[in-house]
Amino acid sequence: MALASEKGWGRAVVVALPYLWLLALFLAPFLIVFKISLSQDVVAQPPYAPLLDLSAGWQGITDFLSQLSFANYWYVLDFSNEFLQAYGSSLIIAAISTLLLLAAGYPIAYGMARAPRSLQPTLLMLVILPFWTSFLIRVYAWIGILSPEGLLNQALMGLGVIDSPLEILNTDLAVYIGIVYSYLPFMVLPLYSALEKMDMTLLEAAEDLGCPPWKAFWTITFPLSLPGVAAGALLCFIPAVGEFVIPDLLGGSDTLMIGKSLWTEFTVNRSWTVSSAVAVLLLLVLVVPIVIYQNIQQRELEAGR
């Protein structure tokens, strides 16, 4: 509820400070990225051209505009440069990972929501706890497990299940494991909060009206948890598309993901203009899911009041 009385400079400061901060350090950088994606690489400081020369007046601006080009985009969209494949495989890997996360996260969230009330805070904390420990550490932990001489292979060979070590590290499988592992809390938490606030008497009503439990799950519980499913799926899918650390540490040299391509383009090829174009296109791909996610978040918060 808006307080009509809280007008004046106090209100202005509270709105303006974070607003201006985000305009300067979140929105403005995107405009710069967009501008640089239309520029050319040069050996200079900064390593791109043209630069906007405002001291030259209108002439400076028109010169600047005439030198911008979409060349970097054609480069990125050229099939032989493997960026398109990277976009595609990122989307596929993120989508499959999201489905795996949903399959793994739903039973956990469901079990937590149905656990005795007194146990729930502890369970919730246990899900959140790994999230507080370093992401990098959690990915790193899997290297020791999945490597050919790693603990998983040792265990399997010790049990006599396999004779020679499985190649898991540096494959797409390892990337899937890494994403599912790292993002699991992000999937479980929204699912849990959707399932937890569900009125249990709805299920009793369904049973009372002659609906068997398994059917009640699909006709009552699951549809009501859909906002949680959507929030969890987007919360995992969007960052996973641009994931860099996991494919870099767990994936193989043939694992194509756009986050890794961008990083390589930037640090190895040192092309700021091409990496900017890659970033702009990635943002275009993600803009729809990001907007949907925002709407879900907004609705969730408004419903909370």
């Binding site: 607003y19 979140f26 950088p29 710069i32 900064p46 986050g259 961008l262 700021w272 970033a279 990001i290």
Partner: peptide
Amino acid sequence: FSGMIYAPLVMPEVITGLSLLLLFVA
């Protein structure tokens, strides 16, 4: 404003990082 609050939560880090670097250079 609310868009700028929610977007960074899911924005791939490579994009945020690159854009901030280019800002600092600019």
